[in-house]
Amino acid sequence: MAATTTLSIVCPAYQEEDVLPLFHAALAAALEPLAAEYALEILYVDDGSRDRTLEVIRGLAAADPRVRYVSLSRNFGHQAALTAGLDHASGDAVVSLDSDLQHPPALIPTLVARWRAGNDVVLTIRADDVRLSWFKRFSSRLFYKILARFTDLDVRPSASDFRLLSRTALDGLLRLPEAHRYLRGMVQWLGFRVAEVPFSPEARRAGTSKYTLRRMVRFALDGLLSFSPAPVRLAVGAGLAVTALSWAVTSAVALASLSFADSHLALVLVALTGGHTVAAGALLAIGVLGEYAVRIYEQVKGRPVYVLKESTAVVQNPALALPARTRTARAA
């Protein structure tokens, strides 16, 4: 009897030509126990790679009838690539994981079991990875502490984008039209029943990490600005602190300058310094407000989250994408 329940696996990839064959072999082995019960769909997303990633994915699709793929016109970023995959996933449940093998495919049957137990969202919680730099571990902890302090979202500090969503949860997620997408927060905002599965990240088998400091900062800003007024509150607090410090320094120097011969010049210099300090605090607050204004401007323009270049998958949610040149998709 043919399986009536479909399980989709969404795998974004950017410049991963070396690791993709290894990843696909590990994924196929992990899905083998589920093959008798589920119709399986493997959906790769090429995020505008400039190497042979798309060529390798085409080869996987030619060799494995379960494979579909979409290719974006340029590099739109990890969260946009994930969104593209989720838009095209047709499964009753959808698992997303990175294709660099740091998210272990062997954990997928466990996620499916938690879903079958009645959970609409199954998160994976990353164990502390001592191979990461102290800066990355420290900045990550600081970011989640700020997010927890200034928002009502219960975003786990070690949650990853390796997760399972039921079709109900996924349909709810795809109704959210944010241009700047922080999927971890968006999934938590939905409010569905959540289960958690811990995992230890694996070492990369090939290739290098594409998560640069710039991408980390952009990701953190998307999380803070999309779900928290923390930057505005911090800017206001910093402005008040700077103003108070400026007045304190000005008063102290003014009192000390009374004993100087040229006290008027000292007072002028203190006033200028205080004015510059207050202006710096004001510019900080204006900059934060400007960042919110820019994001509102980008949102109201209504541009798609991504643009497709090529696809063998049928889009399930056309609202967030521009169409692609479509190749004929083979039946699974």
Rank of each mutant, 00 (worst) to 15 (best):
P201A: 07
R204A: 14
A206E: 14
A206P: 10
S209E: 08
S209F: 07
K210S: 12
R214M: 03
R215Y: 06
M216N: 07
V217K: 06
R218W: 07
R218L: 15
F219H: 12
A220M: 12
L221H: 09
L221I: 07
L221N: 13
L221K: 13
D222L: 02
G223C: 06
S228F: 04
P229F: 08
P229V: 10
A230Q: 05
A230S: 09
P231L: 07
V232P: 00
A235W: 01
A235I: 08
G237T: 10
G239H: 15
L240R: 15
L240I: 11
T243S: 14
A244E: 13
S246A: 15
W247Q: 11
A248L: 13
A248P: 00
A248W: 08
V249Q: 02
T250M: 08
A252I: 00
A252M: 00
V253H: 03
A254L: 01
L255A: 01
A256W: 08
L258I: 00
F260I: 00
A261P: 01
D262G: 02
D262K: 05
L267T: 01
L267K: 03
V268A: 04
L269S: 08
V270Q: 04
A271W: 09
A271I: 11
T273V: 10
G274Y: 05
G274R: 01
G275A: 11
H276S: 11
T277V: 09
A279V: 09
G281L: 09
A285Y: 14
A285W: 15
V288A: 03
L289T: 10
L289S: 11
G290R: 14
G290L: 09
V294W: 14
R295F: 12
E298H: 15
Q299L: 13
V300N: 04
K301C: 12
K301T: 06
K301F: 05
K301P: 02
